[in-house]
């Protein structure tokens, strides 16, 4: 490692440092500052104290919207944790066996991951159309009358979760797979010689050994579920149709900050308060969860 002239160093470091300063650090500070102000368009219009925060948390109708959206995010998170990650774990195990065609399967399961959420959202919106969609056509072929999917408050959110499942399952699957492939072959061989079935392998041997990968996947699932925006925006619209049944924090935040189609009202003060609360919530939960998950890695490893 050598020392060089400060000028050459500054030349190398300045572009990246300046970009980060201007487009990450400064806006981030701004996000906290703005939450304490009233806004008139793009300009601040007086100190607001804590009232932006108290409004969105306790003052109806804000509070009702906030907690309805939060509830939906929690449902999304739970569903993705169990179904998407569970499926991914099974698929990873199936791929680990390296049966004929496993490389092709790997490419197939990851294909939707590279598509944009906008394409995936519109595609599933068409597939789930109650009258002309393929899904209900397939169900009709086995004499099942399909539900109106996105049109019904009961099935709308699960429909978007299904699209998310299709879009993203390949991602945790291949991360689990990479972790499983790092387990020494002798370990698995020894367990098998002791008579361990696939079920036992999955639960007792592999699960603890892929705990670090699980930590990352769980954290990403959490952050992803609470930043959910594109899919519900495309499939259910900015107001979370029908009747707010699919409203999530991302949509609610965007509507508050930049206005909806019906009302072009921008409200940067309340929007910023929401952003700060979401940021604090994500940071707090992920740091506690990370600590617990890391401890779990040690305990079961």
């Amino acid at each position: 490692m050598r020392s060089v002239s400060p000028l050459w160093l500054a030349f190398l470091l300045a572009p990246a440092a300046l970009t980060m300063l201007v487009f990450v650090a400064w806006p981030l500070l701004g996000a906290f500052r703005y939450a304490f102000f009233d806004f008139n368009g793009l300009a601040t219009a007086g100190f607001a104290g804590l009232h932006n925060f108290t409004d969105v948390l306790f003052e109806p109708p804000w509070s009702a919207w906030t907690f309805q959206a939060l509830r939906h995010n929690i449902v999304v998170f739970a569903a993705l944790m169990i179904v998407q990650n569970g499926l991914a774990y099974l698929i990873a195990f199936a791929l680990l066996k390296a049966l004929p065609g496993h490389r092709l399967h790997q490419v197939i399961v990851f294909l939707p991951v590279v598509l944009s959420a906008v394409i995936v959202g519109f595609l599933w919106k068409l597939l789930l159309h109650p009258l002309f969609g393929v899904v209900n056509a397939l169900l009709a072929a086995i004499h099942i009358q399909g539900p109106p999917w996105l049109g019904d408050a009961e099935t709308a959110l699960p429909s978007i979760i299904l699209a998310n499942l299709w879009h993203w399952t390949g991602f945790p699957a291949l991360i689990f797979l990479a972790a499983m492939q790092r387990i020494p072959a002798e370990t698995l061989e020894a367990a098998r010689l002791d008579g361990a079935t696939d079920g036992v392998l999955l639960r007792r041997i592999i699960w603890p050994l892929v705990a670090p990968a699980a930590t990352i996947i769980f954290t990403l699932t959490f952050i992803g579920s609470f930043n959910w925006f594109e899919l519900p925006y495309v499939m259910a619209g900015l107001s979370g149709a029908p009747g707010g049944a699919t409203d999530v924090l991302g949509l609610y935040f965007y509507r508050t900050a930049f206005g909806s189609v019906s009302s072009g009202l921008q409200d940067f003060g309340h929007g910023s308060a929401l952003a700060v609360l979401m940021f604090a919530f994500l940071a707090a939960v992920s740091s506690v969860a990370l600590r617990l998950l890391r401890r779990r890695e040690v305990d079961i490893g």
Partner: peptide, 26 residues
């Protein structure tokens, strides 16, 4: 320290800073 500062950016969900980013770009 500088490297750590850069890597701290990995934790920042820039989407949530969209409002100040918007004002600043403007």
């Amino acid at each position: 320290t500088l490297l750590l500062l850069f890597l701290a950016g990995l934790m920042v969900p820039l989407k949530l800073a969209i409002i100040p980013l918007f004002v600043q770009l403007d």
